[in-house]
């Protein structure tokens, strides 16, 4: 398969901004006397407009990693930059979608999304337009006045995506965004996210434990291992978007990654083992 950079895919808006660079990230939690290494020497460069999926077992530090990029946690070693600027604290340039939608139950969908614009210095009308546009983008037109409890899980997660995109961030961070949804909704929303990404074109970094999802959406899939969290392998997915789930390439890659994740507790770098069969 030839690698087709997403920038050459017709219809995909190319952005010049949104390059995320992580260099030598080290993060540890200290309990009374012990220290727990969560991330060790984690380095990754993400191109503007690229979609990077990160998969790994639970406890490999992938959610922590996202919190660091988002700026919710500043205590780590190493450097994280966005377009060459060092990341410090949270910023409207970096959007974040959580696993649970985290919409506020006391606000309408519209107000929830508008909350993200609270500190944007633009006119009221401009804000209203942004909110309306993004509600339309995620296909929730007509639900502006609905409260979160009136929405299905999938709709709520779409609203959360709209909220994180309404600031037009350079990079969107997604922390297992579909992890709490049922299988059918998840497949549907994966398609929707791909459509949104193609239409909107910001850099996306998505954490997931679903290898199929990682491959279906990502230009690149980063495989992590735990104790301490580190990259063991990176897979380029050289397929044009939008993709065909039935593609044999995706299936082959999925088998490879799964084999690595399930069989190798102490995987040396870049080794992809084939399924042994008896261990499954």
């Amino acid at each position: 398969m030839d690698y087709v950079p997403h920038s050459q895919i017709p219809g995909h808006k190319v952005k010049q901004t949104g390059a995320v660079s992580l260099k030598g990230i080290k993060k540890q939690f200290n309990f009374k006397d012990r220290e727990l290494k969560v991330l060790s020497e984690f380095s990754l460069d993400v191109q503007p407009g690229e979609f990077v999926s990160i998969v790994g077992p639970s406890g490999c530090g992938k959610s922590t990693l996202l919190r660091l990029i988002a700026g919710l946690d500043d205590t780590y070693d190493g450097t994280i930059t966005l377009d060459g600027q060092r990341v410090a604290g949270t910023s409207l340039e970096r959007g974040l979608v959580f696993q649970d939608h985290r919409l506020f139950p006391w606000m309408t969908l519209e107000d929830n999304i508008a909350l993200a614009l609270t500190n944007r210095q633009i006119s009221k009308d401009a804000k209203a337009k942004l909110v309306a546009d993004h509600i339309a983008l995620v296909g929730l037109k007509g639900f502006e006045k609905a409260f979160p409890h009136q929405l299905s899980g999938g709709m709520a997660q779409r609203a959360a995506i709209a909220r994180s995109l309404v600031n037009e961030p350079k990079v969107l961070l997604l922390d297992e965004p579909f992890g709490a949804l049922d299988a059918l909704t998840r497949v549907h929303l994966q398609g929707e996210l791909q459509r949104i990404w193609l239409a909107q074109g910001s850099t996306m970094i998505m954490i997931t434990h679903d290898v199929e999802e990682a491959l279906y959406l990502g230009d690149r899939v980063v495989v992590m291992q735990a104790n301490p969290g580190r990259i063991t392998h990176t897979v380029d997915v050289n397929l044009p978007h939008p993709r065909d789930r039935a593609s044999p390439v995706l299936h082959r890659l999925k088998d490879e990654i799964l084999a690595e994740l399930t069989n190798v507790p102490e995987a040396p770098n870049s080794v992809v083992r084939l399924i042994k069969g008896d261990d499954q």
């Binding site: 988002a70 910023s91 959007g95 649970d100 506020f104 006391w106 993200a116 609270t118 500190n119 600031n167």
Partner: peptide, 27 residues
């Protein structure tokens, strides 16, 4: 904390965090 995180992501200041998140959540 997960609700307060949302406020941090959207850079709400102390008053905004109180009025938009903490107060309604505690109501």
């Amino acid at each position: 904390a997960r609700l307060l995180d949302v406020g941090r992501v959207y850079r709400l200041n102390g008053w905004q965090t109180f009025w938009r998140i903490q107060w309604p959540a505690a109501l």
